[in-house]
């Protein structure tokens, strides 16, 4: 794994999270939630600090991080795109959207574009099944998306770049 140097902000964030939860091992998931929320992802270095502070093995922390799909070890794109692959969205054509996003962005699910602008992931039911199929870009929800619209959604965010 590539080693990166954590910023002092990141180190402080992690240490603060550990102390707020009283260095308790049973609060590990809450600590991870806090760190991911503030830092965007959980690189190995963050996990190392947590392990040290909570006096547990790095393997154990990693075991938890890798178990839960919500936790990510790679940075997301500036505009993270998530396609709902819940059953309701699947039967209304979500798979075609995945294909189309992959084709347009030239990346696979779980990857980030070279310019760091977009990342692509799938999730399972955002609770808006009535508007299936659903695509989310950041916190914004797009409903009844057709493969044809994919291009427009992407260009909406490309424009906001400049």
């Amino acid at each position: 794994m590539k080693t990166i140097k954590l910023s002092s902000f990141a180190i402080e964030t992690v240490e603060e999270a550990c102390s707020d939860f009283q260095y308790r091992e049973d609060e590990l998931i809450n600590i991870l939630h806090r760190c991911q929320h503030k830092l965007g992802y959980l690189p190995a270095e963050v996990q190392e600090i947590i392990a040290q502070k909570l006096q547990m093995s790095v393997a154990k922390v990693y075991g938890v991080v890798s178990f839960y799909s919500f936790f990510s070890m790679i940075p997301q794109g500036k505009h993270p795109i998530s396609i709902c692959m819940g059953t309701a969205c699947y039967v209304r054509g979500a798979e075609k959207l995945v294909d189309e996003f992959k084709r347009q962005l030239r990346i696979d699910v779980g990857e980030t574009t070279q310019d760091g602008n977009f990342s692509l992931s799938c999730l399972r039911c955002v609770g808006a099944c009535g508007l299936a199929p659903i695509v989310m870009v950041g916190d914004k929800v797009y409903g009844r998306v057709s493969a044809k619209q994919v291009k427009d959604i992407i260009s909406e965010y490309q424009k906001s770049m400049v």
Binding site: T87, Y90, R124, A128, C129
Partner: peptide, 11 residues
């Protein structure tokens, strides 16, 4: 509520 495509409990 992990069943993908269900949102009863959440609602």
């Amino acid at each position: 509520e992990g069943d993908p495509g269900a949102f009863m409990d959440r609602s």
